[in-house]
Simulated scan of single mutants.
Amino acid sequence: MITLKRLNDDEFVLNAILIEQVQSLPDTTISLINGKKIVVKDNASDVIQMVTDYYQDIGLARVQVKAGEEDE
């Protein structure tokens, strides 16, 4: 789980496994696997770092490396 801020500064927690895509449009927009989109105040590079850290914490980063997806 990662903690993010909405544009009105309200914090919320998101299950990072549900994230499909992160874009800067110019606001950071997170697309989830269920089709929902969330606009957050955090910049895209910070969101990506939080997701990467979360994946490492739960052991998913090793799965990506074994699958050959290290550069994606």
Rank of each mutant, 00 (worst) to 15 (best):
I2V: 02
T3R: 00
L4Q: 14
K5C: 11
R6Q: 10
L7G: 10
N8L: 02
D10V: 03
D10L: 03
E11G: 09
E11M: 06
L14H: 00
N15K: 06
N15G: 05
N15I: 03
A16M: 04
I17W: 11
L18Y: 13
Q21M: 08
V22R: 04
V22Y: 04
L25E: 13
P26S: 03
P26E: 05
T29Y: 05
T29P: 08
T29Q: 13
S31K: 14
L32N: 06
L32P: 12
I33N: 14
I33D: 09
N34F: 13
V39M: 15
V40D: 03
V40F: 01
K41S: 11
K41M: 08
D42A: 00
N43S: 12
N43P: 14
I48H: 04
I48W: 09
Q49Y: 09
M50C: 10
M50W: 15
D53Y: 02
Y54K: 12
Y54A: 12
Y55I: 05
Q56C: 11
I58E: 06
G59A: 00
L60K: 14
A61L: 12
V63I: 12
Q64S: 13
V65R: 04
K66I: 07
K66M: 09
G68C: 00
E69C: 05
E70W: 02
E72G: 07
